[in-house]
């Protein structure tokens, strides 16, 4: 069973891929809000709201 987290905005389930790592971004499938994975351990995942795209991001 893949790990799941609840979207704080709309309450939908967000599935966490098996190979997810801290720092990765996951999106709510319903409202699209983006979260950053803070930690994954012992079947628990902690999310925080992802940062907005910065002016100095990217190549």
């Amino acid at each position: 069973m893949p790990l799941k987290a609840k979207c704080k905005e709309c309450g939908a389930d967000i599935e966490i891929p098996d190979d997810a790592l801290p720092g990765e971004i996951v999106s709510c499938p319903d409202c699209g809000l983006e979260y950053e994975i803070v930690s994954i351990s012992a079947g628990k995942v902690e999310l925080k709201l992802a940062e907005d795209i910065g002016e100095d991001w990217g190549e």
Partner: peptide
């Protein structure tokens, strides 16, 4: 600071 496809 953000784990993209590239970093993985």
């Amino acid at each position: 600071d953000r784990l993209r496809w590239e970093e993985k």
